[in-house]
Write a protein that binds this DNA or RNA. Structure first.
Lengths: 200, 200
DNA sequence: CGGAAAGTAGACTATCCAGTCTACTCTCTG
DNA sequence: CAGAGAGTAGACTGGATAGTCTACTTTCCG
């Protein structure tokens, strides 16, 4: 009852995976038939599991939305913590999957504004809020300059991802994940937010 | 010979403008007929001027590619110069047109990789290179910490645009252009790159 | 005036696609 | 074995679209 009944049973899962891959790589524009083919499933089977292409897309996006949950505990060294966060953040966003998902969501945001907003809030915004909370604690105990933690989180996430995301999206570059870059960025951030003389 | 012959003469220009607007706002996906309608021109007239939809799109993008050419003279105060640059940069990238163009280019980069690369190089990359050159001069004369000017330019452009671009692209926010933000970013950048004690 | 150049309207072809429907097969279970 | 449940192949509908073609009109200019 193994290989054959599996074919029957997890068609839905195979469909989700195929749709995920194919939506990411070719955009919402891709045809239903290509998704079904990729899942090695008949078109009708797809419609047995999902009422429409839109619903399947929403399902895929919802499944793909996961904020960058990184150890942001705050007990250890600030620099080490931010390094770990930075590496995880960059790995997630600058991976081929992360870039492709971003591309698709940006492209389809006008068509699916609610979905795009959810993606934004549960993805980038959630990660930034967690980071801001950590930074606030670090500021509180004097490990960082007392400043607006939301602003600081914006700056760090921007420095970590922006330029290389552009390179990946528009210039089709793939060698984006140099760990040295994370350290360079974190040190730059720490210079800007070092606990210093002046603060209000 | 005025209003009537104009209709004949500048059909090409009207087509380009209509295509620019419509490609930006609805993506490459938009139909040829909508472009022709928008330009108040027959479909065949469009094909008299452009051999295909792809060619028209390429033409529009090429016309729209203009690097952010800002006064980056270097004689005046560094902070003032960077403020002017930052405001111009943000106005360009975070305007509805800038966001829409970015969205379209990101979406169509897989289909038009060469065009996307040109957009990247003549847009964001060119602006960053000019900024890096300015920063290098400022570092040379001791107005900024001696560091890698390309890296510094990456950090500044990232801090200026990244978060608000996400907001505009995914969260459909429109109130992105607060001038105070530019100053906040520039001051953050100057803290990170202040001419300081240690340098190699 | 008369012809060339450019534009126009719209029919037409060929293609593609989302979604429906039907008739068939396979597999498991009672 | 028999029937239910799930999957399959493929025809079909209705609509959209890029690009071509034809027949007509307008404008300009010699």
């Amino acid at each position: 009852m193994s290989t054959i009944s599996e074919t029957h049973h997890d068609a839905r899962q195979r469909l989700l995976e195929a749709a995920c891959e194919v939506f990411r790589n070719e955009g919402y524009q891709v045809s239903i038939d290509r998704i079904a083919q990729r899942a090695q499933v008949a078109r009708q089977t797809l419609y047995n599991h999902f009422p429409s292409k839109e619903a399947l897309f929403a399902e895929v996006v919802h499944q793909g939305i996961q904020s960058v949950l990184v150890t942001l505990d705050g007990d250890s060294d600030v620099r080490a913590t931010l390094l770990a966060f930075g590496n995880a953040y960059r790995e997630k966003l600058l991976s081929p999957q992360g870039l492709a998902l971003f591309r698709t969501m940006a492209a389809e945001a006008p068509r699916f504004p609610d979905l795009a907003r959810q993606f934004f809030q549960q993805g980038p915004l959630a990660a930034r809020k967690r980071l801001a909370a950590y930074l606030a604690r670090a500021m509180e105990r004097g490990a960082l300059r007392r400043d607006d933690p939301d602003f600081a989180a914006e700056m760090l996430t921007a420095m970590l991802a922006d330029t290389d995301r552009l390179r990946g999206l528009l210039n089709h570059q793939t060698d984006l994940l140099k760990p040295a870059k994370t350290a360079q960025v974190v040190d730059c951030f720490l210079r800007a937010f070092a606990p210093g003389k002046d603060m209000q």
